[in-house]
Design a protein around this nucleic acid. Structure first.
Length: 297
DNA sequence: CATCAGGACCCTTTTACGTCA
DNA sequence: AGTGACGTAAAAGGGTCCTGA
């Protein structure tokens, strides 16, 4: 049952992500960034080259630290619960002064912890706050307290996320038990983590599209120039010789005999030399096209 | 077959916390 | 040392979708 649900979700959100992230791929870009794809569990929504966690996800200091710790044995033992930040460094998990009561390992320090026991439905805000108020009475008027996860907790979560970016209830419960967190906290962490992943991927896609757009703009500019030159050439060819001869051509147009491409080169010495432009039987197509003629007729 | 409850997830917003100037 | 701005992670709230009863 659990696995079924899981698979379904994957499928569902795979489609979802096609909408969200598909833009970079619609252009048929094979995102070359895909180098280290192995790192991140290719989520169902993996559409383009996954950049791997290395360069992407640890965008912030804290996550970075967590990722660096990844090598540590996966199942950390004696993980620092959210309380008693004994010898934490900068990422000390602080307990709110109000939350002086120590809950037993099962009940997390999260002020919202009561929420997780509300059978999953996160609605019922009033119930939540009410519960919170009753649970940690001294929480100061129901203001939720956020507790940073410890480095170790984050590392384990990161590791697990790399294996699979979603959790089935069993895994969630196990992880929560292992980390001494509420299942709800684990769930929220995974949600936020997925959101961060998606954001990063979107940024990468966006950057790629930007580059692609620049390339196309350049190409477009180049083609426009080429078109102008060709039009000028055509005009010159059509002009009567005596008129054309009076205007010293700023450039000399030459044609490659093999490929029949016309090249315009500045040629000072050959100023009076007029290229007999229509040497090439270029416009083989009638103008306007026959179809157009027919339709206009 | 229609309906409903339950569950999982996503998206957006809010809030608490940490850092820096 | 105190403070405000800012960035970020944790959490809330609301919505969608799917499944099973």
């Amino acid at each position: 049952m659990e696995m079924m649900v899981h698979g379904r979700r994957d499928e569902q959100y795979g489609q979802h992500h096609h909408l969200g992230l598909g833009l970079g791929l619609g252009l048929g870009l094979s995102l070359g960034v895909a180098g280290g794809a192995a790192d991140e569990t290719p989520p169902p929504q993996q559409l383009c080259g996954w950049n791997g966690a290395a360069g992407l996800f640890p965008s912030d200091r804290r996550t970075m630290m967590a990722c660096h710790d990844v090598e540590m044995p996966l199942f950390l033992r004696g993980i620092d619960v959210n309380r008693t930040p004994v010898a934490e460094t900068t990422t000390t998990v602080r307990r709110a002064p109000s939350c002086s009561d120590e809950e037993e390992p099962g009940a997390s320090s999260s002020p919202n912890s009561t929420l997780s026991s509300l059978s999953g439905k996160r609605g019922a805000p009033s119930a939540a706050t009410a519960a919170a108020g009753s649970d940690d009475e001294d929480s100061g008027g129901g203001s939720r307290k956020k507790l940073r996860l410890s480095k170790d907790q984050a590392a384990v979560l990161e590791d697990t996320f790399k294996e699979h970016n979603t959790l089935n209830p069993k895994q969630k419960a196990a992880l929560a038990r292992q980390l001494n967190l509420k299942p709800r906290q684990v769930e929220v962490w995974f949600q936020n983590r997925r959101a961060r992943t998606k954001l990063k991927q979107t940024e990468v896609d966006c950057e790629l599209l930007k580059r692609c757009c620049e390339t196309l703009t350049d190409e477009n500019r180049r083609l426009h120039r080429e078109l102008q030159e060709l039009r000028a050439l055509k005009l010159a060819a059509a002009a009567p010789h005596h008129l054309y001869a009076r205007v010293p051509p700023p450039t000399t147009l030459t044609m490659c005999p093999s490929c029949e491409r016309i090249a315009s080169t500045t040629h000072n010495s050959g100023a009076g030399k007029v290229v007999d432009a229509p040497a090439r039987p270029v416009p083989t197509r009638p103008w306007p096209p026959a179809a157009a003629q027919r339709s206009s007729a």
